[in-house]
Design a protein around this nucleic acid. Structure first.
Length: 638
RNA sequence: GCUCCGGUAGCUCAGUGGUAGAGCGCUUCCUUGGUAAGGAAGAGGUCGAGGGUUCAAUUCCCUCCCGGAGCUCCA
């Protein structure tokens, strides 16, 4: 009698199957429905192909479309099918890597002629053929020598191959004519692929190293259902519509000019209003939290940056030196040295601490031309920077106060957020024990508040651990948010001190923190977050007053004046037809339209139409509307 | 910086080896309007910059500048 294996299912149920069975056989044993739906399996914690022979007794979990891991498999398998198709059209294409990624997959190819959009269409057609052929994904274990032979025409694969240890199991996967060096697993056959779409091509360095060969990357995405694919493509379309560069132009928020230079933002009046509102709000907030405003120059002596170490560690990101009367100056890439100089302008007593200096400081950094991107990645930007000088004992309360600030700020803008604690990296300066202690302090505050956080092990800067806050925007994308950073470096470099209770000199702890980070990036992000429809308190134009006809212009103008008198940004539009003006106000995303005609004139009212609310309108007493607007602005309602 | 793609009116775009066109916007006039485009006329372009090929270049070639998709890096 054949021997049997005992498999344990996720629900704890035990099953006996003949030796030599595969997960597929297990699925069939459980039911035909599962056998059909199963795509792969997790055996003793390891993902394996559905038809892989089981080695012995094991825990097994069958993966179907509903498991997140299955989507990754699907995408990875789709990448293989893409490579199969590319090889059909371009037999000489060298194959690089083709993994699944967060939103889909890519595959890198070494080709002489880059791919065109027409190529992508041809590849999609060829992929259909591969799918129809329903080739199984066949897994084989090979020796290094066998693999060398199999991939003798694929230099990129050979290079990867040499990195395997001699005793490592090397596996290859074959689907029809295409063979790839691959760890797997895959879906059972090419016929199991779902709907997919090739999206774009781009250059990518072999192994991400800019000194290496440039490969051609094809990006695509794949799902189990057409519905999900369409949803994803819609999301991409939605993101495209929110693009701050397009909205920024349409709403006259900012511009760039090649005469000024790449990566340098010109804030137009409407954008400046938004920026100024944010600055005013934040100023009020931080003054309430015990910060003091300071200002420091944009250009400072190069010697300062020698002392701070920026010239040593940050030089490739700094603008070049300019010379004045024999001395060299630099545009500042960071605000900290200036703030330290202010701290050191006097002898400091422990009684003064903590000292919190805040500045909307404009910094300039050289960024490679290829990375510049609208307002999100620029060469000149204004940070809402602050530096806290305090004693070691004060660190926890300072961190706690910051958590409050961050929460209040992000709630105002309607951003949910997550927290990350970044700890000591390999190459770090300072005593590991000091690091340990500081990290414990940060952790302690988070835990005391019962805040959820993740740990980015080794993700801290070389000079100190940090807390990173990630924002989640209206369409679910993550953005870099506030950061708080402990610094064990600059206090030493500048020999910062305070006189303690014991009348001795002591070194204060220094914290760097930003809430919004960079004005440019934050506003760019806000444009996309709100899709250009800013809440009332930020909206460049808050109320547009529309007289029905010329007859009511004086009355409408008087109302505009009254609104402005109360600090409301109101404008009169009286030229074109009412329909036209309504449409224009909607397109400009003005929060409120106030229409005045015969009826309103008679009753001293105003017909209020809210942005995006269509024909729904409200008849309000003029002072009632004014008060409502003021209230909404003051509470910074979202 | 690198690979590929692009740059024509303020914006979105069409077009051509014989020096240019649309829609929107803008100006003026008519219309005096009741909730997402009332009508007409007009102005506006050294076709990104420089060089080359050609009888002739916005068009073909080269270099540069700027933008885009990525790679790498970052607030």
């Amino acid at each position: 009698m054949a021997r049997t294996l005992q498999v344990t299912l996720p629900d704890g149920k035990l099953l006996r199957v003949p030796e030599g069975s595969s997960p597929y056989d297990v699925a069939r044993e459980i039911g035909p429905g599962l056998a059909k739906a199963a795509l792969a399996a997790e055996v003793d914690g390891e993902l394996v192909d559905l038809h892989r022979t089981l080695e012995g007794d094991c825990d097994i979990r069958l993966l179907t479309e509903r498991d997140p891991e299955a989507l990754e498999l699907l995408r990875h398998s789709t990448a293989h099918v893409l490579a199969t198709a590319v090889r059909k059209h371009r037999p000489d294409a060298e194959i690089g890597f083709g993994p699944s990624i967060e939103e889909g997959f890519y595959y890198d190819f070494g080709v002489d002629e880059p791919f065109t959009p027409e190529d992508l269409e041809a590849f999609e057609e060829a992929m259909e053929e591969v799918i129809e052929a329903d080739y199984p994904f066949e897994r084989r274990e090979v020796t290094k020598d066998e693999a060398r032979e199999l991939f003798h025409d694929d230099p990129l694969k050979l290079e990867r191959l040499e990195e395997f240890d001699d005793d490592e199991v090397i596996t290859v996967y074959q689907d029809g004519p295409f063979l790839d060096l691959c760890k797997g697993p895959h879906v059972p056959s090419t016929g199991h692929l779902g709907p997919y779409k090739l999206l774009s091509t781009a250059g990518a360095y072999w192994r991400g190293d800019e000194r290496r060969q440039m490969l051609q990357r094809i990006y695509g995405t794949a799902f189990f259902s057409g519905k999900e694919l369409r949803k994803h493509l819609n999301r991409l379309e939605e993101a495209r519509k929110r693009d701050h560069r397009i909205l920024g132009r349409e709403l006259d928020l900012y511009t760039v000019d090649e005469r000024v230079g790449s990566g340098l933002i010109l804030w137009k009046p409407a954008g400046s209003i938004i920026r100024n509102e944010i600055e005013e709000y934040e100023k009020e907030l931080i003054l309430r939290h015990g910060y003091e405003l300071v200002y420091t120059p944009h250009v400072m002596s190069e010697r300062l940056f020698e002392q701070s170490g920026h010239l040593e560690n940050f030089k490739e990101n700094m603008f070049g030196a300019m010379e004045v009367e024999g001395a060299r100056y630099r545009a500042k890439p960071m605000n900290c040295p200036g703030h330290i100089c202010i701290y050191q302008a006097e002898q400091r007593s422990y009684r003064e601490l903590p000292i919190r200096y805040a500045e909307f400081g404009t910094v300039y950094r050289y960024e490679r031309s290829g990375v510049l991107h609208g307002m999100l990645r620029v060469r000149g930007f204004t940070q809402d920077d602050a530096h806290v000088f305090c004693t070691e004992e004060q660190v926890p309360s300072e961190i706690a106060a910051l958590l409050d600030l961050v929460d209040e700020m992000l709630t105002t803008f309607g951003y949910p957020y997550t927290i990350e604690l970044a700890t000591r990296p390999e190459k770090a300066m300072g005593d590991p024990q000091v690091w340990e202690h500081a990290q414990d302090q940060l952790r302690g505050v988070l835990e005391e508040r019962e805040l959820a956080y993740t740990v980015d092990e080794g993700g801290g800067a070389f000079y100190g651990p940090k807390l990173d806050f990630k924002l989640i925007d209206a369409i679910g994308r993550k953005w870099q948010g506030p950061t708080v950073q402990l610094d064990f470096n600059l206090p030493d470099r500048f020999d910062i001190e305070f006189i303690g209770e014991d009348n001795e000199r002591h070194r204060p702890v220094m914290l760097h923190r930003v809430l919004i980070g960079s004005m440019e990036r934050f506003v760019g992000g806000l444009i996309e977050h709100y899709a250009g429809a800013f809440p009332l308190w930020l909206a460049p134009e808050q109320v547009r007053v529309l007289p029905i006809s010329e007859q009511w212009v004086p009355e409408a103008r008087a109302y505009v004046d009254q609104l402005r008198e109360s600090g409301i940004r109101a404008h009169l539009k009286d030229r074109e037809s009412l329909s036209y003006r309504i449409r224009d106000a909607e397109l400009r995303k003005v929060p409120y339209m106030a229409v005045i005609g015969e009826r309103e004139a008679k009753e001293g009212t105003v017909a209020v139409r809210k942005r995006g609310a269509g024909k729904k309108q409200e008849m309000l007493d003029r002072s009632a509307f004014l008060n409502r607007v003021i209230e909404e602005i003051e509470t910074r309602a979202r």
